[in-house]
Simulated assay, not measured.
Amino acid sequence: MQTGTLFRHCYEIDIGEGGGRGKHFTSWQETPLQIEFDIVKNADEEPNRHMLRLFNLTSETADAISIMDNVVRLSAGYVEHTGAMLAAVGVITSAITTVQDGGTVTEIEFLDGYQEMRDAALSVAYPKGTKADAALRDIAQKMNLKLVMADRLPFREFLHGYSYYGAARVALRKICGDSGLEWSIQNGELQVIKSNGYTPRRAVVLSASSGMIGSPTRTRIAAKEKAMTEPKSAAKGKGTQAETDARKRQEAERRKQARQEKFLKKQKKDGWVVESLLLPQVNPGDIVKVEARKITAFMRVDAVRHSGSFYGDEWKTELNLREIVLDERDNKQQGATRR
């Protein structure tokens, strides 16, 4: 798809309880809402932290969607290409409405996998000889998540059996760690791949003709090992409406900074940063093929950031990448797709 044909932004947003649809917002309505989003994803065990802003909602609609643990599904894309594709899923952990420039802005923070990690408990016992993949399937079912696994994974065998009672996320960490695997939750799915490996999804080509913006930038910054922490809430207290809005904006800024830290946390030494027109289908652990003057190579996505403003110019994806050697069988199968 030539980049010159990709002009019109489109989106679909659903916010409601559990699997219910709830409130639906779309760019196809007669007067679409202005929206902004900042989607940050890493291939680690912490919930991916996302932000969505909805402008000038009625007070009734803002109140209806601003409920903790409501599920947000955000899809975005281009009218002239595939339309809106799933970019992020998560449960609401913060919702703040402020008055700005004579209108209102409802800012929602939602975390992918937060509820499942928080609530899912596990009680299992396996006889000797059981392989770890059986346990992973049980854990995914208990967490009510679809399990997506790469091919040919080196599952450990429980030589003396295995029993566990406690938080499902702790069992995931131990079972995957013992088998040389890594796990994360991406778009409401439990993703399991080899440690520093890649998913079986077909690679997307990043080139000037497919939407790459500028040239790949080499990074030589050591990965940040600082653990992600919950941003502190702004101090509450009585005051004028202006003071209240100022506190809310301060809290929103802290959360924005936390998302930025999470994105930078996976920036690898001797990696690459690439910007592209929006690629909502690309997730951490995927393979992309970079075709540029500086370099042509298959690379693993360590972190991805989708950001956009419906009526603005920004509608793009930023990727932190590192070169990777594909398994010979995968190399033959990777007929990379262009967008």
Score class of each variant (00 low, 15 high):
63 D>H: 12
64 A>F: 00
64 A>R: 07
64 A>G: 03
65 I>T: 10
67 I>E: 11
68 M>S: 12
70 N>T: 07
71 V>Y: 01
74 L>S: 06
75 S>F: 00
75 S>V: 00
77 G>K: 09
79 V>G: 06
84 A>N: 05
87 A>I: 03
92 I>C: 13
93 T>Y: 02
94 S>T: 13
100 Q>M: 08
101 D>W: 00
101 D>Q: 11
102 G>Y: 00
103 G>Y: 03
107 E>F: 00
109 E>S: 08
109 E>I: 13
110 F>L: 10
112 D>V: 07
118 R>C: 11
122 L>R: 08
123 S>Q: 05
123 S>N: 09
123 S>K: 05
125 A>M: 11
127 P>C: 03
129 G>Y: 03
129 G>P: 04
133 D>R: 08
135 A>L: 12
135 A>Y: 07
139 I>V: 14
140 A>W: 04
141 Q>P: 00
144 N>W: 07
144 N>L: 11
144 N>D: 15
145 L>D: 11
147 L>Y: 13
147 L>K: 13
148 V>R: 14
148 V>M: 11
149 M>I: 12
150 A>S: 11
151 D>L: 05
151 D>E: 12
152 R>D: 14
152 R>W: 03
155 F>W: 15
156 R>E: 11
157 E>V: 14
160 H>F: 12
160 H>N: 15
162 Y>G: 04
162 Y>A: 09
